[in-house]
Design a protein around this nucleic acid. Structure first.
Lengths: 185, 185
DNA sequence: TAGTTTGTACAGTAAAAACTGTATAAAAAA
DNA sequence: TTTTTTATACAGTTTTTACTGTACAAACTA
């Protein structure tokens, strides 16, 4: 096998692994392939570059690069003289992981807490209502306990997201470079 | 509005929020609804119970309860005299979150590390090969640096999963119950 | 043993999501 | 200004995924 072929094969293996695991980011394999391809390019790419490299429509490239951008997996780049939009993969993967948390889980936590607080308030009121039968009161009381439990859980999750966001997680799980090796020069 | 109706509405809000966020677990809304419904039942349910409660086919209930079980969000239960399989939601949500990590991310990390090590070995070999042109050598060297970087990243992620799995995460982000409140009695 | 009951495999259908091509708006160049 | 370039909105198509009903195997009952 020829040298460039070997290089290409080594890259393809990584790209395909990314594609098959990107569902953890809520993205589909083709977006992962796009990300993986960009990872091995040493220059930012335009939508037309991606269309050519991946053999997919420009519309697809546009929508999936936006999905990747929303999760901060890729970012806009600039190069003088180039009018087209340019994109490159964010080179701090630790930060990308943290961003996933911030963006996806934070949002989920917030939605849950809003719902829980609202339902909890309604149930407390129902419990206090003198027209509520004793039988219903018991059921309501059980639900209130359940909601208090999951409220605590989501508050914990919120603090967990905080810990990622403010980088404290690196105190507990430090970054260790087995060689002095870093993409960011 | 009648009391039981109010209770039902308060529950529905929570169930629907779960359904809309369960994609973070890689599951579809209907599985989330199933989980949410089970959460408010104080007894384990059979597949037929679920069919009735959700108005969906037994086959669906079977496949989605299996998906929920695989992520350890629900578990088998037993009740004497009941021949049918019984399921209940796992009542430790903190553990469920940890299990998500263990199951989904651990697997992903492993797959990535296997691929990276393989590609890295191939590229090191290519670099050492005297028939490799200088131009190709340079490209290979760049890729090796990239792969070393992401190898470090996935090893970090692996340690992160460890920290969840062995509960050390609770040292950094402790569980705080604002009242002394716990589902597990 | 035969007769039920129960869970799931499988094939088919319905619904949803991914992807494409065209049309168009916004921005840049002339 | 008009012309050209670029990204994306949108409608239509293809592909994938979710869901259903039937059929059957395994487990239980009598």
């Amino acid at each position: 096998m020829e040298g460039y072929e070997k290089l290409e094969k080594a890259r393809e293996r990584i790209i395909e692994t990314i594609a098959q695991n990107i569902h953890l980011y809520g993205l589909v394999p083709s977006a992962g392939r796009q990300y993986g391809m960009m990872f091995f390019q040493n220059e930012p790419l335009t939508l037309d570059d991606m269309t050519e490299k991946l053999g997919m429509s420009k519309t697809s490239m546009s929508t999936s690069v936006r999905a990747l951008s929303d999760l901060k997996l890729v970012e806009r780049a600039w190069k003088k003289g180039v009018r087209k939009d340019l994109y490159k993969v964010s080179d701090d993967w630790y930060q990308s992981f943290i961003d996933l948390f911030s963006i996806k889980w934070r949002r989920s936590v917030t939605l849950h807490l809003v719902a829980i607080k609202k339902s909890l308030a309604e149930l407390e009121q129902l419990l206090a209502d003198p027209t509520t039968s004793e039988e219903l009161q018991e059921e309501v009381q059980i639900d209130i306990e359940k909601l208090k439990y999951i409220k605590n859980y989501y508050e914990w999750l919120e603090r967990l997201v905080d810990v990622f966001e403010d980088q404290k997680i690196f105190d507990l799980v430090p970054i260790m470079n087995d060689s002095d090796n870093n993409l960011k020069d």
